[in-house]
Amino acid sequence: MKPAPFDFVRAETLAEALETLARSGEDGRVLAGGQSFVPMLNMRLARPGVLVDIMGVAELRGLDVAKGVLRVGSGVRQVELARWPDLDTRLPLLAAAIPYIGHVQTRSRGTVCGSLAHADPSAELPLALIALEGEIHLRTKKARRTVVARDFFLGMMATALQPGEMIEAVSFPLRRAGEGFGFREVARRHGDYAVVACAAVAGPSGIRLAVGGVGDVPALRSMPDPASGDLEDALNDFAWALDAREDLHATPRYRRELVRRLGREAIEEAMRCRS
């Protein structure tokens, strides 16, 4: 199939992109890497009236560290984040998760913020952002606002983005003293979307576990220390609270079992890796 007709604007500045989106209203959509959005266009699951290509906007291509976070502009490709020199030491959860995102070819084109805007509940980047308690920076022609990750994802491929608004950047909190991280995923094949993925963060303030691939949005919950003997019950309660879906890849029962198994493995890894 081919996309429904639309107007195409290749923005050269952020101001031009925002002006075009403001004029377009609900008909405007942003195109970045296009690895998820272009197939939706071809299948006519998305029918924008105006498509704004932002990959020529230099202002959106930055990777900047400030105030304990890595700020990633909406034009930064996934491969650029993967090659950030300090990723292994300062954002080890992302270093563990990125190799599971699609394949080398898709990571070389796909953007970090594009994956967040697409909001697939099985995708690794939304899961990692929620586990790290990161933030998404949104902008229109007239205003800026920041949304915490847990409030940004509203449902399957549904977000808090408003008409005329775009993601300007995302902030990933950097590793703090005493924190450890764990990541586990099961998929039909490497590079496929996760059947279930678990991301754990263990630090001085406690343990939190994020789970993707089960419900319509990634979910986050505090977990007890494995040494307390309460972890199995807590994981079981979490698994049953997730409203696991059934599809051609897995039954709800299988997904809940993966939450229990992968969740424990991710938490144990995070506890071992605390610095």
Rank of each mutant, 00 (worst) to 15 (best):
A197H: 01
A158E: 12
D233I: 14
L220F: 11
E12I: 11
F152G: 01
A187M: 05
R44V: 12
V214I: 05
E19Q: 07
A197F: 01
I167F: 03
A239W: 00
M271G: 11
Q35T: 14
P126S: 07
R107N: 12
W240G: 03
M55Q: 14
A194S: 12
R256N: 02
A200Q: 06
K141V: 04
A131P: 10
P85I: 10
R90G: 01
P252W: 05
L138S: 02
P121V: 07
S122K: 01
G206I: 09
A187D: 03
V72L: 00
E265C: 03
L63I: 06
E59Y: 07
R261T: 15
L231P: 11
D247Y: 09
Q78Y: 02
A219M: 09
A187N: 06
V147P: 05
S108L: 10
V9M: 14
A241K: 04
V195C: 08
L132S: 04
R255N: 05
M166E: 02
G34H: 14
M1C: 13
F238C: 09
V201H: 13
E59R: 07
G34K: 13
E12D: 13
P39K: 09
V201N: 09
D151T: 00
V30T: 05
T140K: 08
L18M: 12
P126V: 06
V38Q: 14
A96P: 00
S108V: 04
S74R: 01
E268I: 08
A197W: 01
V214F: 04
S222C: 13
L87K: 03
D230C: 11
G164W: 06
A160M: 08
A160Q: 07
Q105L: 14
D230G: 15
G213M: 10
A177E: 15
R109G: 01
L93D: 08
L116K: 07
E179V: 12
M1Y: 13
L231W: 12
E185T: 11
V214Q: 03
L258M: 13
A210W: 12
R188T: 14
R188W: 12
R61F: 01
G73W: 02
R208Y: 11
G49D: 10
A200H: 02
R90A: 14
P226E: 08
W84G: 02
A194Y: 05
E269F: 07
D192Y: 06
V9C: 14
V196G: 04
L60T: 01
D216F: 00
L231A: 10
A202Q: 03
V76M: 08
G212D: 04
P218D: 09
Y254D: 03
R260G: 06
V57F: 09
K67Q: 10
P218Q: 11
H249S: 09
R71W: 01
W240Y: 12
A158S: 02
R264W: 05
S122I: 00
V196T: 07
G73V: 01
F153G: 02
V195Q: 03
T13W: 11
A244R: 05
G110I: 14
Y193H: 13
D27G: 14
V57I: 15
G134I: 03
P39C: 10
R184D: 11
